[in-house]
């Protein structure tokens, strides 16, 4: 996508902020960004507390990257305003840029430079040295040091991401923006990357992280679920799951194979009280449209309903995952148009 890069003199909202919460690390009010006829970000508002690990969870096209570019002063908003560690990204970009670390989604390193050369380069941009910043980057550097002389292009996906994180940290920023740091990285490397973020969090770093992987929500203090430029919900991951408003049942077919799964799926979608039925790994998740009834009783009844149709399956009540909650919000918040 193409966007006018911002002019240093900034034409965005230069007015004083209402500053409803002066203690917040990030405040956004009605942030909106259009690219031609595409509404990439649609009146997004939220706050991030100092020291918080805040996740933006959503698929491609949700607006995560656009939001990060607004908050890091790379784009100007069409509407709305924000404040990042006391600075307005639209008017105070130079002061802000010295104090924030930004790890873009695409590989942002110099492939022909070695690991240590990349790091030295980013340090020099901020008038510092790798040695002077060793306290900050040490936990990550320890994992990179064995590859110090290797060209960045020759690193594994997981190692590239660790180096990019190291480069984003090498000027000791007060806040970190990590845009899809784990996309395309294998499951073990993803876990290791989140372990590193947990260590930074213990050190008091404020972090905003975006990800398309729903299972990573649990690593965040709070998450914003995003879809098509809007925030569907903001809460602690446990609260997002607990807020699921309907009984949820896991249905497992007695047989195996694709035909059995499709048959069960089709049968359950015919149930008069089915709000939604989706495959979830080897089980199906059945959301009942009635808010009140006891889930255990519903499970028994649904098992009997299936048995009466000659379908053998086990049914049990379960608690919602982040994905269940996301799908519920997606379908219940569908715009009228």
């Amino acid at each position: 996508m193409k966007a006018a890069t911002r002019e240093p003199a900034g034409v965005g909202s230069g007015a004083a902020h209402p500053a409803t919460n002066v203690g917040a690390a990030v405040q956004a009010r009605g942030l909106t960004k259009r690219f031609g006829s595409v509404l990439a970000l649609d009146h997004v508002s939220f706050e991030v507390a100092p020291g918080e690990l805040f996740g933006f969870i959503g698929p491609d096209g949700a607006g995560k990257t656009t939001l990060f570019r607004l908050l890091t002063s790379l784009y100007l908003p069409d509407e709305g305003e924000s404040r990042v560690i006391g600075h307005d990204p639209a008017t105070d970009m130079w002061a802000l840029r010295r104090r924030l670390g930004y790890m873009p989604g695409r590989f942002s390193l110099y492939p022909d430079l070695t690991v240590i050369e990349n790091l030295q380069f980013y340090a020099s941009v901020f008038d510092t040295t790798v040695a002077a910043q060793m306290d900050t980057i040490e936990p990550i550097w320890r994992q990179l040091a064995p590859f110090a002389g290797r060209r960045a292009a020759a690193l594994s996906g997981g190692m590239k991401q660790k180096l990019a994180l190291c480069c984003a940290l090498v000027h000791s920023p007060s806040i970190l923006f990590l845009d899809e740091p784990t996309t395309g990285v294998d499951a073990v490397s993803r876990r290791e990357f989140w372990d590193l973020l947990a260590r930074l969090r213990e050190g008091g770093m404020t972090m905003l992280v975006s990800t398309p992987y729903m299972d990573e929500a649990s690593r965040c203090d709070r998450v914003a679920l995003m879809q098509q430029g809007r925030i569907l919900r903001i809460d602690r991951p446990s609260a997002v799951r607990a807020a699921f408003p309907r009984p949820l049942l896991a249905v497992t077919a007695a047989g195996e194979g694709a035909a059995v799964r499709i048959g069960l799926l089709a049968a359950l979608r015919e149930h008069p009280d089915a709000a939604s039925v989706w495959p979830f790994g080897s089980t199906l998740h059945f959301t009942d449209r009635r808010a009140g009834p006891d889930p255990a009783r519903l499970a028994t009844e649904l098992g009997e309903w299936l048995a009466a149709r000659g379908i053998a399956a086990t049914v049990r009540p379960i608690s919602a995952t982040i994905e269940d909650a996301f799908m519920w919000d997606m379908t219940s918040a569908e715009p009228a148009a």
């Binding site: 698929p59 996309t183 395309g184 694709a258 035909a259 499709i262 495959p279 799908m327």
Partner: peptide, 21 residues
């Protein structure tokens, strides 16, 4: 199925199941 929302991902898996069936 990288990068798509959870509902679209599941629709894709339903296509896979139909193909396998």
């Amino acid at each position: 199925t990288g990068g798509v929302d959870p509902i679209t991902r599941r629709r894709f898996w339903e296509l896979i199941y139909e193909t396998a069936a």
